[in-house]
Simulated scan of single mutants.
Amino acid sequence: MNQPLQALRVMVSAGASGIGLAIAQAFAQAGARVHISDIAEPALAAALPSLPGGGVWLADASDPAAVDAWFAHALAALGGLDVLVNNAGIAGPTAHIEDIGPEAWDQTMAVNVRSQYLCVRRAVPALRASARASIINLSSVAGRMGYPMRTPYAASKWAVIGLTQSLAMELGSDGITVNAILPGIVDSERSRSVTAAKAQLRQISEQAMLDEILQNVSLHRKVPLEDVAQTALFLASSAGRSFTGQSFNVCAGIQSLR
């Protein structure tokens, strides 16, 4: 980055653990003021000390009233907004399509897609007043390739790419950049739970499942959370000002999701 990120005002949905927390902490360490939301109150309390000058808010990012309350509080606390990171997401079910109920499908779409719409609609008026405005949407490598037995998740992450590219065109005249980060197999608790679910479905060990998954990754390893966080910092920095409508694959060279 060729310009410091000090004084940036940042909001991160689902920022109390995993990728969201890594991104929030990276911004805070760079000097930004960060406000996060999450559905896990104990995780929010644990995250707060690592976000000096920032704040936390208990909210379900797929709930319109909860998002409205978070933005009202965070925008007042921060005095404006420069960066929105749409990180809220769930893995959804791991099952054959005929075994996935409508409720599980709808929940995956609500958390992974509707949450981003709800946050963007509240963020844009504040971002228009910023000289360094950016929106960073978390998608997945499942947003560019098929993912058998994870169809709700893949469909939602492809939707995030469409949202990102459309918003980049719509908001370009306001100087707001909009990009997506597509993590691969991240070294996180969610990733481990997905591997466990797939192993159970296949009736093999978790280690055997992981070994099989990593055979389709060029670097034969998971992606550290820090690598995803550093990509977000780049996109919010002056070095990233000419990137918009783009999908950044932080995936260690993944070739297939099977």
Score class of each variant (00 low, 15 high):
168 A>V: 09
154 A>W: 01
59 A>M: 04
134 S>A: 11
68 D>L: 07
27 F>S: 10
10 V>P: 00
29 Q>M: 06
83 V>D: 02
210 L>I: 08
162 G>L: 08
164 T>V: 08
1 M>V: 08
82 D>S: 08
108 T>M: 08
221 R>T: 14
219 L>I: 07
91 A>D: 15
21 L>A: 11
118 L>P: 02
255 Q>S: 06
94 T>D: 05
193 S>V: 13
32 A>P: 00
181 I>Q: 04
76 A>W: 03
221 R>Q: 12
78 L>S: 09
96 H>L: 14
120 V>N: 09
66 A>C: 02
218 S>P: 13
73 H>Y: 06
220 H>S: 15
220 H>T: 13
173 S>Y: 12
4 P>E: 04
185 I>S: 13
155 A>Y: 09
249 N>L: 04
152 P>S: 11
212 E>N: 12
170 E>A: 14
146 G>I: 13
29 Q>C: 09
167 L>F: 03
175 G>P: 05
215 Q>I: 06
125 P>N: 07
224 P>E: 04
203 Q>G: 10
222 K>I: 13
80 G>S: 06
79 G>A: 02
211 D>T: 12
60 D>P: 02
161 I>Q: 13
3 Q>W: 09
69 A>V: 03
13 S>V: 04
95 A>M: 10
181 I>R: 02
55 G>D: 08
106 D>F: 03
193 S>A: 14
18 G>L: 09
